[in-house]
Design a protein around this nucleic acid. Structure first.
Length: 595
RNA sequence: GCCGGGAUAGUUCAGUGGUAGAACAUUUUCUUGGUAAGAAAAAGGUCAUGGGUUCGAUUCCCAUUCUCGGCUCCA
């Protein structure tokens, strides 16, 4: 049995061959197998017979047809080995300069023998493995393969993934062993689409982003805003109970603040441009900047007093709304926006307290994530980036502390080299949703540098000034992104305590309206709504189901007479009659256990 | 920002070089109902914006904005 990766990789080569025949003179980048399929990067801009500058989607069927023709020709894949020198010579003749670059990289890493694969007129630098012949794709057990791949889209992709390099044209394809697997894949894609928080947001009337107001700026509708408030209330209470203190700070500050913090140097491309105050008033000499982060404000509060070692650790928290300039191509629903609210906190402590504070932060973090129903995470430790402030020694110290506390809490992590923030290393926690996609929300960062820039001090036991260490941490990350992930995780069916509308009371006829309103009154501490529109019960039940309402209470003659309610639960359907007091007990328990 | 798509009613989408249609939602009337769509009628659009070609453009062309899928970047 052929491995699917082998098939995908070979299809990438066949795509290469097809392109070579259709557009002679094309330069080739790389063409690997990927999850669900394959891609190949091409440089068309060199007299490749392409009329327009770039390849359009309308060309894909033609290329796909060519690939199928090639497969039917039963072309063999032959592996050959040669020396680096020979290989360079070989590709030089064919003017495949990207390949030469790859060979040079390979020679440094792996040594002197280079393997290539020859399939018909197309020869590619490749370690393999490959199919023996394209006959394997259209005969015998595997004859379905020829009908189980598709070219899907065209995208630009930078050579070697570096923005500074030339952008090549990437053609993506999907490929499976059987038609059924392809059908299953397409079905899963559809399911993912249905779970898309942007769709859910529209369907459940939670939020919108308006062209008139601006890209990446979220407008929360009543139902979305209440959801946001429930989460905010929960998280703030949690922090206050864990000895954080609440602070509140402005949205703009003078440019000088950001110069001190280092943001104008290291974070400039993410900050909205300056507000020029002199345009208003000649004497207003200071320019302002809208905040991309809350840290400098919290530092300012710290610095209002002379701090003693007895005061430490100091933990300030704020639901701080920040604005960051994000490039237009990266915005995505709620998960990547330009204005967002962080459940931000900053902790200042003495050196010897650092490990303990980090451990507390990690523990709190997992407690919170568990409450929201997230059980799987990927943890990354990001180390010193190229653009950074502070000494190497401090970076090492901070990184080691993070490693130590992760180990102490028993968490497995991966290193993400060079991905730290400019002021310090960080631990990011990517939450996995129910479809296994990972989203970065939590971030915990150690910072030796801002305390230095802002000359923060405390008085130690010996009566001398000492610099505290600073921890930045946000557990939900951004409320916007977190809600987006939450919606996808639950497919919109939020647990009772989070549901914007928890209970619908559905009177069967208008005779029970008054009774329905009475019940609503008794459910005052919940988010209950009387649905007394002139519609049938069935229709309202259907609507409740679409809107993912946890409970629908149906009341008619019988219930009114017996002073009961009939309960339909979102997951279980009709669960029978109950006294209202019993139901309240039940949902009080739901609220308490956050289920 | 870059590459490739897209933008028609509140929503999901048809459609056309001669100024627009469906379904759902909305409003009204009838219906007073027992667990996933009761019936009828009405109302809804500068066909994203700005130019150009044309006797005439929502349709063709160009630009802009927004949006979607990638790349890069990121909470």
């Amino acid at each position: 049995m052929l491995k699917i990766e082998t098939i995908r990789h070979s299809l990438a080569h066949i795509l290469g061959l097809a392109i070579q025949e259709l557009y002679p003179g094309v330069k080739f980048g790389i063409g690997p197998a990927i999850q669900d399929g394959f891609y190949y990067d091409f440089d068309f801009n060199q007299k490749s017979g392409l009329q327009t500058k770039n390849l359009g989607l309308e060309n894909l069927p033609r290329i796909e047809k060519k690939m199928k023709e090639i497969i039917k020709q039963d072309i063999d894949f032959k592996k050959k080995e040669m020396s680096v020198k020979q290989a360079i010579e070989f590709f030089k003749k064919r003017k495949q300069y990207y390949k030469i670059e790859l060979i040079k990289d390979l020679a440094q890493k792996k040594g002197k023998i280079i393997s290539i694969y020859e399939s018909g007129k197309f020869t590619d630098l490749c370690a393999g493995p490959h199919i023996k012949s394209t006959i394997q794709l259209h005969s015998g057990d595997t004859k379905e393969i020829i009908n189980s791949f598709r070219l899907t889209r065209i995208a630009g992709a930078y050579w070697k993934g570096d923005e500074k390099n030339k952008m090549l044209t990437r053609i993506y394809g999907i490929a499976f062993q059987t038609k059924k697997e392809l059908a299953d894949y397409l079905k899963l894609q559809k399911e993912k689409e249905q779970r898309d928080h942007r769709e859910i947001g529209k369907k459940l009337d939670l939020f919108h982003i308006s062209e008139e107001i601006g890209p990446g700026l979220v407008l929360w509708h009543p139902r979305g805003a209440i959801l946001k408030k429930i989460i905010e209330d929960y998280i703030l209470e949690k922090y206050l109970k864990n000895d954080y203190e609440l602070v509140s700070t402005p949205h703009i500050a003078k440019i000088g603040l950001w110069e001190t913090s280092g943001h104008t140097n290291f974070y400039k491309e993410n900050m909205f441009p300056l507000m020029h105050m002199q345009e208003l008033e000649k004497d207003e000499k200071d320019n302002y900047e809208i905040k991309p982060m809350n840290c400098p404000f919290h530092i300012s509060i710290y610095k209002q007093k002379i701090r003693s070692y007895k005061d430490l650790p100091i933990r300030y928290t704020e639901l701080g709304t920040v604005y960051r300039y994000e490039r237009s191509g990266v915005l995505h629903g709620l998960t990547r926006v330009r204005g967002f609210t962080q459940d931000d906190a900053h902790i200042w402590c003495a050196k010897e307290q650092l490990d303990k504070e980090l451990i507390l932060a990690f523990k709190l973090c997992f407690e919170v994530l568990k409450t929201f129903g997230f059980k799987k995470y990927d943890i990354y430790l990001s180390t010193m980036p190229k653009k950074h402030v502070g000494t190497l020694k401090n970076w090492e110290k901070a990184t080691n502390s993070l490693k130590y506390s992760l180990k102490k809490v028993g968490l497995k992590y991966e290193i993400d080299p060079g991905e730290g923030v400019f002021y310090g290393p960080k631990v990011d926690i990517k939450i996995k949703d129910s479809l296994g996609r990972a989203w970065q929300c939590t971030t915990i960062q150690v910072d030796f540098n801002l305390p230095n820039n802002f000359e923060m001090t405390y008085i130690n036991k010996k009566g001398k000034k000492e610099q505290p260490i600073m921890i930045h941490r946000a557990i939900l990350g951004s409320l916007e992104r977190f809600i987006g992930v939450l919606l996808e995780n639950y497919g919109g069916a939020l647990p009772f305590w989070l549901a914007p509308e928890q209970i619908w009371i559905i009177p069967i006829s208008s005779k029970e309206k008054t009774y329905a309103k009475k019940i609503a009154k008794e459910l005052f501490s919940f988010r209950a709504k009387v649905k007394d529109e002139n519609e049938t019960v069935s229709k309202k039940i259907r609507e409740a189901s679409i809107q993912k309402i946890p409970y629908a209470l149906v009341i008619g003659k019988k219930e009114m007479k017996e002073k009961t309610i009939r309960i339909r639960q979102r997951e279980k359907g009709d669960i029978g009659e109950m006294k209202l007091s019993m139901f309240i007990k039940k949902i009080n328990a739901d609220t308490k256990s956050k289920k």
